[in-house]
Simulated scan of single mutants.
Amino acid sequence: MIIDYRYHIASLVAVFIALGIGILVGSAVLGNEGIVERQKQLADRLEIQLEELRDKNEAVQARANNLEIDNNIQKQFEKQVLPPLVAGKLSGKRLAIVETNSYGFRDDLINALTMAGATVQSVTTVLDGFELTNRKDRIISELNLKENEDEKIIKLLAAETARGILTGEKQAMLNTLAQVDLLELSGDYGVPIDGIIFIGGSQDQTLVKTENLDYPMIDYFLQQKLPVFGVEETNVTFSYMKSYQKKRVSTVDNVETVPGQLALVMAIAGKPGHYGVKPTAKQLLPPFETTGGVGSGQSVSGNTRP
C-alpha cells in the first residue's frame, strides 16, 4: 500500500500557521523574548520534520511509479506470450460456461479459450442464485412443479438447467427462467460439448448456494462423463474452491489473470489439478513440456509452493 504523507504535511502546515500567530501575539502582547525563542526553536524542528516527510513522500511516489511501470511491462509480456503458449491446445474442443455468481466475467477468458482453438457453445448465467422471492408462485404454475420448498425447487431448477444445456430438451423451461430474470442465456443449447466451466466465487454471501445450485448441475454433468472445471477470480470474498474440490473437479482460483487462463487451458487439455494462488491451490501452473533449453520433452513444473 502506498503511504500518502499529504495529510501529515497539511497538519504540519496548520501547526506552522498556529505558531506564526503565537509568535506575533507573544511579541506584541507579552514581549517575552524567551517565549518567542522557544516558539522559533519548535518551528525549526517542525520545519525539519516537514522536509523529511517531503523526502519520504517523494521516495514513495518514485517507488510507486517504478512498480506501475514494472506491472505494465509484466502485463504486456503476459499478453504476448499467452497466444503461443495456448495455440492449438484445445483444437476442436466444444465448451459450455455456467456462471453461478451473477457477476459476469471478462471477455479475455473466452478470448484465451478461443486462442487455444476451443469453441464456447453456450454461456448460461444464473441470476440471484435462483432467488425465488416474488417469483415462486409463477414458476410453480408455469413449470407445473410439485415441489413447494425453496431449496428443493432450486435443486430441481439447477439439475434441469444442466440437462437443458446438454440436451436442449428443456428449452421451454430455460426460456421461462429467462423471462422471470433467473437466467441469462447465450449461444447454442443441445449441441455436443466436451467440457463445462463453472464460474463461481462471490462477493455476496447470500449468493453462495453451492450445495443447492452448483452441486446438482455439476453432478448431472459428471454423470454424463463430462469433465467439469471450477474457476473464480482472485479477489472474491467467498471462495468456491473448497466446495468445487469436494466434487473432485479441477479448479483455477485466479482465472482473470494470464497464468490462470493458461492453467485452465492446460487443465482442459488433459492436465487436471488445483491451480492458482490461494491456499486451496496445489500449483500455480500444471507441469508443461519444453522443446528446448531444458531438454526436449522434459517436464517443467509450474509449482510455486515448497
Results as ranks from 00 to 15, higher is better:
Gly195Val: 07
Gly195Glu: 08
Ile196Phe: 12
Ile197Gln: 01
Ile197Val: 06
Ile199Met: 02
Ile199Ala: 03
Gly200Gln: 09
Gly200Pro: 15
Gly201Cys: 13
Gly201His: 09
Gly201Tyr: 03
Ser202Ala: 12
Ser202Glu: 12
Asp204Ile: 05
Asp204Pro: 00
Lys209Ile: 04
Thr210Asp: 15
Glu211Asp: 06
Glu211His: 09
Asn212Val: 06
Leu213Cys: 11
Leu213Asn: 07
Leu213Pro: 13
Tyr215Val: 10
Pro216Lys: 08
Pro216Ala: 11
Met217Glu: 02
Met217Trp: 08
Ile218Leu: 07
Asp219Pro: 06
Tyr220Ala: 04
Phe221Ile: 06
Gln223Leu: 07
Gln223Asp: 13
Gln223Val: 02
Leu226Val: 01
Leu226Trp: 06
Val228Gly: 08
Val228Ile: 13
Phe229Trp: 06
Gly230Ser: 14
Glu232Leu: 08
Glu232Arg: 12
Glu232Gln: 14
Glu233Ile: 10
Glu233His: 00
Thr234Asn: 10
Asn235Asp: 14
Asn235Lys: 06
Asn235Thr: 08
Thr237Cys: 00
Thr237Leu: 14
Phe238Thr: 07
Phe238Trp: 15
Ser239Ala: 10
Ser239Thr: 01
Met241Ile: 15
Met241Ala: 08
Met241Gln: 07
Lys242Thr: 07
Ser243Gln: 06
Ser243Phe: 09
Gln245Glu: 14
Lys246Arg: 03
Lys246Cys: 08
Lys247Ile: 12
Lys247Leu: 15
Val249Ala: 06
Ser250Ile: 11
Ser250His: 04
Val252Gln: 04
Asp253Asn: 06
Asp253Tyr: 04
Asn254Ser: 09
Asn254Met: 13
Glu256His: 15
Thr257Ile: 12
Thr257Ser: 15
Val258His: 09
